[in-house]
């Protein structure tokens, strides 16, 4: 009997592993009324609200969001990640997905976003303009050029002729915001919508219109999700009057 002592636990472990794997398979299986929306991180607050309203109007739909950087989402879609709708923070990432042949309908621009300077409420470095970010002694944090908010920041630098020397280039606009709200940076360059979401935690210094770069947010339904009609209903809702109203309240421009 003693020699079976090791067998039972290892069999149990194997069973547990197998059922875990099987469990993953089941949960990934598409339910008929499940709609998966892959959306840029900067859409988190507004899409949650739009989602609540869409759910009220369509109670039979089980809406699921996946909020991440647009670049990461685009790569996941290209690698075959399941999703029914993709809302990107810039056209470049949507182009990647379209080139991969994953777009069913669209893309259509549903929102625009612009950059703004934010500082901690007490403004320790005395930042009054975009050019002040480049002042020696002022620690500025921006997005890395590889992500949409970073390429927009580069555009503002080009338009204004101000060359920034940031202390850090973050991978995510929310990380830039956190560095400012936690007081670890004198200023950061974030989307207007992030500044709106942060409320009193930041002080806004607007970038002049002439220097602005407008980021366009395209939305599209995806091939392979298997819920074309539902997906189309959701994108229509986002681009409709109710969706636009929510987006505007969160600081987006709407076309």
């Amino acid at each position: 009997m003693r020699k079976f002592r090791g067998v039972v636990p290892s069999l149990a472990l194997l069973l547990a592993l197998l059922s875990a794997v099987a469990g993953c398979g089941v949960s990934a299986e598409e339910d008929d009324d499940t709609l998966t929306v892959l959306a840029a991180a900067s859409l988190t607050e507004s899409f949650r609200e739009i989602g609540d309203r869409f759910a009220t109007a369509n109670p039979e739909v089980d809406l699921r969001f996946n909020f991440q950087g647009s670049s990461m989402l685009a790569e996941q879609i290209r690698q075959g990640g399941a999703g029914d709708v993709f809302a990107s923070a810039n056209t470049g990432m949507m182009d990647k997905v379209r080139e991969a042949g994953a777009v069913a309908h669209g893309p259509d621009t549903f929102a625009t976003n612009r950059l703004t300077v934010v500082t901690p409420p007490d403004d320790p470095a005395g930042i009054d303009s975009f050019a002040d970010l480049a002042r020696p002694g002022a620690s500025a944090v921006v997005c890395a050029p590889q992500v949409p908010c970073g390429s927009a920041a580069e555009g503002v630098e080009r338009n204004s002729g101000v060359r920034l020397r940031p202390v850090s280039e973050e991978d995510d606009v929310k990380d830039v915001l956190h560095k400012v709200t936690s007081g670890e940076a004198d200023a950061g360059l974030v989307y207007v919508t992030d500044a709106v979401a942060a409320g009193d935690e930041v002080r806004r210094v607007d970038v002049p219109d002439a220097d602005q770069v407008t980021n366009e947010y395209p939305i599209a339904t995806l091939d392979g999700g298997g819920h074309q009609r539902l997906a189309q209903r959701f994108t229509d809702f986002v681009r409709g009057e109710e969706g636009r109203e929510v987006l505007r309240r969160h600081g987006f421009g709407t076309p």
Binding site: G69, S71, M72, E75, A144, P145, Q146, V147, E169, D171
Partner: peptide
């Protein structure tokens, strides 16, 4: 991680 955002 940064490069993965743009150039895999």
């Amino acid at each position: 991680y940064t490069e993965a955002q743009a150039d895999v």
